[in-house]
Amino acid sequence: MTSLLLALAITASQILLGLAMGCAAFRMLRGPRAQDRVLGLDTLYLTGMLLLLTYGIQTGRTLYFETALVIALLGFVGTVALGKFLMRGEVIE
């Protein structure tokens, strides 16, 4: 019974996180400016990382933890690179 409740809670939170990823993707696709898109990407990978952690709880495997760590590392580097590009890549549009 409690196992079923926990399964329900985890599935519900996965749906919520999926919706959050949808919101972030909307902001990434719509803009209106380049920094809004980068912000959307930043939120997207963070939420994706959290979603993987809930999969880890669901299956009880630590494999998902390592995937989440790699996503956090690569996402940080990617966003920093994009931010730097916005500063340096184009001086005046």
Partner: peptide, 30 residues
């Protein structure tokens, strides 16, 4: 895919609330 690890009742409730609350807060942020 509805499955969950077997936890004692108190732990299942705490884990469920924490995960659900965190997900809800993330959704509000998004």
């Amino acid at each position: 895919m509805m499955q969950a690890p077997d936890l004692p009742t108190w732990a299942a409730i705490i884990v469920g609330l924490l995960v659900l609350g965190g997900a809800a807060l993330t959704l509000v942020g998004a």
